[in-house]
Design a binder for these strands. Structure first.
Lengths: 183, 183
DNA sequence: GGGCCCATGTAACTTGTTACATGATTAG
DNA sequence: CTAATCATGTAACAAGTTACATGGGCCC
């Protein structure tokens, strides 16, 4: 069982869901495609950690709902006592930043403005989630406590990234104006 | 050519380096093992984007230093005009947080305290880097400008993660004391 | 004497991506 | 009429990890 499998198991444990829905809900924390998720769910069903049933829908394709089994819940509880792997971040922007010295300043500004708008959107995304969590669902012990603290983290990080973009842009624009007319 | 290859090319372009050194320097921005990096460097040499020579050392194993070629530099410049992929983050802690409702509060506290000390260390790491960058090496155009803005970002993010851990811990401890004696 | 750092490399495996395959409904 | 969303799945490939392999110097 890999980490993603446990993540899916954890989501199903809180609320039975379709593979498609799990794929969407796990995105903010673990970017995985449906083509990776569907086979994992199937193999967890083979191992009897999950059970499933089909739900017919009109106007939409039918969906397969997964629920956690007692065995799956047991497996999840054990997982809670295992050591936690450090976070892995892979951001092409950082690698691109290594090479900023060989780009024109206009290109550099475009790069960080693009990133700025991505994080503005991300900030809004987490703000919306937080607005949807009522005060009485924010205490430890409730299943939504996780949502509350994770959305808060997402928001805080998005704000920090935004602040950084603004700061970088201010440095770049300052340089641009101070050296205007020199080229 | 994948993203990691361009990242390595970008580092070599700023300073010729051994594979081992590149492996260490790229860690904060792209976690890759030496077993992935060495073959990539070899294949880039095959494509004549890099050249190499051996340096003999006493007391340490000999090392192979890579330098960028004109063709490699050309390739890097082209890369600067390509679209940038969004950041990918995979943090087991987030997935573990989904399942907090089925853990005891003591276990939860341990988890976030562990993470707290990791980010305290990370903060120090970036602070040290920043201290090593003199004022006059912080302007756009210099190769160290990248180091300056990336280290600043690393520091800002580490501080945010730290603040979040502290906040989560305060919620957990508050809950712990308010419900003490109830179990 | 045990373990870490330096330094390079390969082999076997797992994880993750892209592309293929299907198809109805809805919004612009 | 074009694209997106919902919904599931597989096949081929690329990316990344773990383990194997070697070996001197240094610190405790």
């Amino acid at each position: 069982m890999n980490t993603l499998s446990y993540g899916l198991l954890g989501l199903v444990a809180r609320k039975e869901s379709s593979g498609y829905d799990l794929m969407l809900r796990i995105q903010p924390f673990w970017q995985a495609k449906h083509s990776q998720i569907y086979p994992l769910l199937a193999s967890m069903e083979d191992k009897q950690l999950l059970s499933s049933y089909w739900v017919q829908q009109n106007d939409k394709p039918d969906k397969k709902i997964y629920a956690i089994t007692e065995k799956g819940l047991q497996k999840l509880r054990e997982w809670m006592y295992q050591p936690i792997a450090p976070a892995v971040t892979k951001d092409e922007l950082s690698l691109r930043t290594f090479c900023l010295w060989l780009a024109e300043i206009g290109v550099a500004i475009d790069i960080y403005e693009d990133r700025r708008s991505i994080y503005t959107e991300k900030k809004r995304f987490f703000e919306n989630i937080l607005e949807g969590i009522p005060e009485d669902s924010r205490e430890f012990g409730s299943k939504t406590f996780s949502n509350y603290i994770l959305a808060t983290k997402g928001l805080m990080l998005a704000e920090t990234e935004l602040k950084w973009c603004d700061w970088v842009l201010s440095l770049l624009k300052q340089h641009q104006s101070s050296s205007s007319g020199q080229s």
